[in-house]
Amino acid sequence: MKKFDAVVIGDANIDLVVVGCNEIPQPGQEIFVDNMMMHVGGGAALFSISFAKLGMKVAFNGILGDDGYGHFIRDQFVQYGIDTSLLGTSQIYNTGVTIAINPQVDRSFITYAGSNQELDVGKLDLDRITEGKHVHLTCYKGTRNHAAVIALARALKAKGVTLSCDVGWDDTGEWNKGVFELMTYMDVFLMNETEGLHYTGLEQVEDSLEHMSAFSNHIVVKLGPKGAIAHKDGIRMHRPAYPVTAVDTTGAGDSFNAGYLYGFLNGLDTGTCLSYGNSCGALSVASYGGSGGAPDRAELEAFIRANQDQSVNQEVSS
């Protein structure tokens, strides 16, 4: 028996959410906003919390600073039952911080990577990581660590665990084509529409998905307010988003990932996985903070029942 349903490898930081900021102050100027809130941030951390809320046993593998922000994140992990025995402490950097400005619309960010930049996937303890049945990666940095992540994925597959990955936004603008090699090791590969178009160099999500399906038999692309689309075993399926009023889109993709992979790891069909993902994403954006609105299992099922007419399978064989 495995100790964890999933081990998550990647980033954790503080999100300072600025609400009602409609302009950036000029030098010497002060502006007032509606609110400022502090939440756990970072794609891996937000996924972990959302996944744990669904009742999954999760261990987090990353690095925090030895400071108040780092202790706050550790305490939040413990509150949600996330195992922190793989969580390292930096002696060099403080915990990372992201300031999210005007999260109701197209967000802007100011980020200090902090202790996250110390995570070296080439030095992880494989025996500890494979205490999980599944490993979710959010630590791919293009050419900066491509060889190390490929080596990690190859070693984990050899030990019989299933793998998923969300590459996230490429802040270098490189959009390294090596990502297609990484896809070949993944049981589920997740990204959003913009990322898929950048990596493939194509203009339509359907063409992008077709291109990526040559490297993986299970690709999931998040389409924001248009829902999500999956290509698995030659079948393409789309499910529209649930209509909700968004107040903060931070972490919506990570919440989607938690819902989708919850379905996948419980052996559910692709349509149900998409429905779970869309539901978790919808509930996430309806609350401030990347995981504040993430549902538990009962809330997820209740939301789907209440909105069962809003999502319909659309399948296309390819």
Results as ranks from 00 to 15, higher is better:
Lys3Met: 04
Val7Ile: 11
Val7Tyr: 10
Ile14Glu: 05
Ile14Gly: 13
Asp15Ser: 07
Leu16Phe: 12
Val19Asp: 15
Asn22Pro: 01
Glu23Tyr: 03
Gln29Thr: 03
Val33Met: 14
Asn35Glu: 12
Val40Thr: 15
Gly42Lys: 08
Ala45Cys: 02
Ile49His: 08
Ala52Ser: 13
Gly55Pro: 00
Lys57Pro: 02
Gly62Ile: 04
Asp66Val: 06
Phe72Ile: 08
Phe72Thr: 10
Gly81Arg: 11
Ser85Phe: 10
Leu87Tyr: 03
Leu87Ser: 07
Gly88Gln: 15
Thr89Gln: 13
Ile92Lys: 12
Asn102Val: 06
Gln104Val: 11
Gln104Trp: 07
Phe109Gln: 09
Ile110Trp: 03
Gly114Gln: 08
Glu118Pro: 07
Val121Ile: 15
Lys123Phe: 09
Leu126Lys: 11
Thr130Leu: 08
Ala147Tyr: 10
Val149Trp: 02
Ile150Cys: 15
Ala151Cys: 03
Leu156Phe: 11
Lys157Glu: 09
Ala158Gly: 14
Ser164Phe: 07
Trp175Met: 09
Met186Ala: 09
Met186His: 04
Leu190Phe: 14
Glu195Phe: 10
Gln204His: 15
Val205Pro: 11
Asp207Met: 13
Ser208Lys: 07
Leu209His: 06
His211Arg: 13
Ile219Met: 13
Ile219Gly: 02
Lys222Glu: 06
Pro225Arg: 09
Pro225Ala: 11
Lys226Ala: 13
Ala230Gln: 05
Asp233Val: 06
Ala241Thr: 11
Tyr242Asn: 01
Pro243Cys: 02
Val244Ser: 05
Thr245Pro: 01
Ser255Val: 02
Phe256Tyr: 14
Asn257Ser: 15
Tyr260Arg: 06
Phe264Ser: 01
Phe264His: 08
Leu265Tyr: 08
Gly267Arg: 04
Asp269Met: 01
Cys273Pro: 08
Gly277Gln: 06
Ser279Met: 02
Gly281Val: 00
Ser284Arg: 00
Ser287Thr: 10
Ser291Arg: 11
Gly292Arg: 04
Ala298Lys: 01
Glu301Met: 06
Ile304Ala: 00
Arg305Val: 07
Gln314His: 15
Glu315Val: 14
Glu315Ser: 09
Val316Cys: 11
